[in-house]
Design a protein around this nucleic acid. Sequence first.
DNA 1: TGTGATGTTGAATG
DNA 2: GCATTCAACATCAC
Length: 264
Amino acid sequence: MPELPEVHNFKQYFDAAATNQVIDRVTVHDDKIIRNMSGPVFADVLTGRKITGSIRRGKYLFAQLDNGHDLLLHFGMNGDLNLYQDESDRGRFERFALHFTDGNTLGFEDSRKFARILYLEDRLDYIEQIKLGPDALELEEAYFLQQLEGRKTTLKGILLNQSVVAGLGNLYVDEICYRTRLHPASRVNAMTLEQKKLIYREILAVMQYATENAPYYRDYPENWFWHTWRHEGGQDPEGEGEVKITKVAGRTTYYVEGRQKLVE
DNA sequence: TGTGATGTTGAATG
DNA sequence: GCATTCAACATCAC
């Protein structure tokens, strides 16, 4: 589920639920998603810590702790947060939970276990290590154009690459391609400078709009891809062609034949 | 019942 | 060493 706008939404939820809360106790039901320590050690290092805030970069959410370390939450395909008081509100797929001293509990749910949870002593070291690119909302044109130099991969492939720009996922990339009128399988090295600049502008426009207006896919405006062309048998809202489903960069891809030009 | 899924990674390949 | 591709991860929903 979560791409940049959805993780932005998780951040709002997390900040309201956890800022200035002190962790009294940690429950770990399944430590498979905790990638750099065992469940008991994870519980131990978090117990007694106060959460001071959070930082989002792309799809990564870093929860800041009062000892200068961070708890990294990456939601994978379908991670979710759930704040509750009553144990009966615990989600079926909760993998671990932070119990705060005020009696509230913040559960991290993840049915498919694709989430990645890490306890980090140095956030910047980690970002460097995984080569995480700049957040899409803070992307600069000159940097973006420079990243595209010498690349031979597809347009979709480059936009999904989190080292180039952080935060775009499968659905929003299709929307960006739709709006640029470029076929997602277009080759980066074959595109004109004007086309690259157009892509840059649409990245920002789509991310800004989605972040400000639509926390969940289902809440998108009626003329957005989610309600129209990005569906089996969907219609191009602008009536320029036929919706096709294919695979690009290994991912299911929707585009409108006749509207989106293949540049190669 | 089989198939595909909104993400990332590490191995394999070029 | 870098760019790129692809299978694997684990489980659920349709």
